[in-house]
Design a protein around this nucleic acid. Structure first.
Lengths: 336, 336
DNA sequence: GGATGAATTGCAATCGATTGCAAAGACGGC
DNA sequence: GCCGTCTTTGCAATCGATTGCAATTCATCC
């Protein structure tokens, strides 16, 4: 039981210890200029009272925060919620990597209303660097900030004229991989499901088209757009299945879409994989737990997160970085 | 193209505008003491250069950050990753609620090594309030901090002597609901799957036991512990199924466990729901997309997030709050 | 013309830490 | 006893904003 209230600032702790604030600061920082006995006395006092220095003041003085901003721009999504386990998975991996380095994560879900959303965070002084998950349709805002703000890494597609650093998988290769797999399984009437306003999805779609063209099924292969998730998407899927008679292969732009598609097929009395083969994208943890287990294109998100954080820290240190494109991998399970 | 570099502090902007820092501060804050023409001139200058005030300095001066800490304590989980979509769902809803109020979210995943992890965040000055998702096995740390730190809301179980505010569902009722449903379906050899070191899970298990006792199946009903997710859990499940012959009903402590269980049953040639009925818990978005769709106990996380944030803001305003226990709801789908 | 008061703006303190530099104290050597 | 050196500690500036209070300007009124 303390009679005086617990000290909350260094000056209060200094008064308790009978020394100056600077001595307390140095003692807690382990500065060797401070006498061992003094340091130990102050450390004991701090421990005893559970003293915790004010990080905001510290951050202001040091001009760094040991915090990384992680931004999810939802530019092209009507729906406001994060429902794709893909995001949690990558956020979880990022949190792991950051925690290892003693950094915190400022998570922002932004629905862009102007092109200043990224600049606001970048110049607020609240974060030492920024990771953006997915370009959405916000290339302009990303480019603008990248001109003057170095510590920025984006998960997503590697685009021609882009000046910012990205980490991602080869989406075109992934789309091709998924599609060729269906064709090898003897599927001929294929559709692609995904919202191609995001560049990653557009690249996967391009990969789908390429594989279709290679196999000479241009005429019978269709490419269709559908939102990412939710009841609307499910209903839309039912409509698509009713319209597209004879479809025997589906390439989905994400596992969540694939799973909804399987459910829609089920509702229409189509068996997966007997009547229709389905390939997802991402290999989210749930993919191997659904029935049938999901054939999918695996993106190594643990590796991706590690790369993003590694690059980001090097950028923070002032070392220029280049983008990385990882190779996606086909994981064959029951749905194809 | 600016010849001078862009102003990054108010004093630089003030120099540009030919006024003092205080005038800039007041102008940007919309203080009516400032002449309209002056204010407009300064605002235009700020807009033109994309000026963004330093939030760290602002936070220090105002002693508030408009940031809420969201903490995921992983005390009882061997596995370090966030893989349960339950977390993403609740984080997404919290992010929505906070964004609406113009607040940011500092996300911390902590693997508690001592009992100071919560205090460190509480007294760092970096957040105006804290939400803890799940008590895990950290009741002691929560209690300790709650003594001296008001703005704290915990998602989880409402426990007898607890001094902090919680929001959650009635886990005992949920467990009972799920179990009674299986019993009504004619199931008699039931098992509960979940890690009861977390108090929420322990309460669900107690509800399971109560329903079993009510129906007089104490002898044949078992209660078993299993980790939350991952390949280990799946293998453990296979082992359990092999040992527990004749099981015809499973109450899972989460949807993720339920889905893994269905997959294990499938691997052992048991049909769901023909041979075994399975009930999950949470009603995560994926629950209605798996095949068979999952019967589950729905927790209204949107409502829960809204309640938590509402309580937290009232606590920040100094208004004492009480805990809320929401009523869980049985959602019957195909798996039972 | 001078007093009064309202409208604007600036000065300087403040939030709580860190750190360069100076000062004080300890100690030994001559 | 005095001086130089080394250790240890404190003073005060700094990070970049906000804000109470004082100062200035200017119009108005008698």
């Amino acid at each position: 039981m303390d009679i005086a209230r617990r000290p909350t600032t260094m000056s209060q702790l200094a008064k308790l210890a009978g020394v100056s604030v600077s001595t307390v600061s140095r003692a807690l920082a382990g500065n060797p200029a401070i006498n061992d006995r003094t340091r130990e006395r102050i450390a004991a006092l701090a421990r005893e009272h559970g003293f915790q220095p004010n990080m905001v003041a510290r951050n202001l003085r040091l001009q760094r925060t040991e915090t990384i901003g992680v931004v999810l721009p939802l530019g092209h999504q009507a729906d406001q919620h994060l429902t794709d386990p893909f995001f949690l998975t990558i956020i979880g991996h990022l949190a792991d990597e950051l925690a290892q380095r003693g950094f915190d994560m400022l998570l922002k879900k932004v629905v862009p209303r102007d092109d200043q959303w990224l600049r606001r965070l970048a110049e607020s002084g609240r974060v030492d660097g920024i990771i953006v998950i997915g370009q959405s349709n916000q290339q302009a805002a990303l480019e603008m900030v990248a001109q003057s703000y170095q510590p920025l890494v984006v998960w997503g597609a590697s685009l021609p004229a882009q000046t910012y650093v990205t980490v991602g998988t080869d989406n075109m290769a992934g789309g091709t991989l998924a599609t060729r797999h269906l064709i090898e399984r003897g599927r001929r009437r294929l559709i692609f499901l995904g919202d191609n306003r995001a560049p990653e999805i557009a690249q996967r779609e391009a990969g789908f088209q390429r594989a279709c063209d290679e196999a000479g099924l241009g005429a019978s292969a269709h490419s269709l757009r559908v939102g990412l998730v939710g009841e609307d998407a499910y209903r839309e899927l039912l409509g698509i299945l009713d319209r597209e008679v004879g479809v025997d292969g589906i390439v989905a732009a994400s596992d969540v879409i694939a799973i909804a598609a399987i459910r829609a097929l089920e509702a229409r009395k189509c068996s997966v994989p007997r009547d229709v083969s389905v390939v997802g994208y991402d290999d989210v943890p749930i993919a191997e737990h659904v029935v049938p287990t999901l054939t999918t294109i695996r993106q190594d998100l643990a590796m991706g997160a590690r790369l993003m954080i590694a690059k980001l820290f090097r950028l923070i240190a002032g070392v220029p970085q280049t983008s990385s494109v990882m190779t996606p991998e086909l994981v064959v399970r029951q749905s194809s």
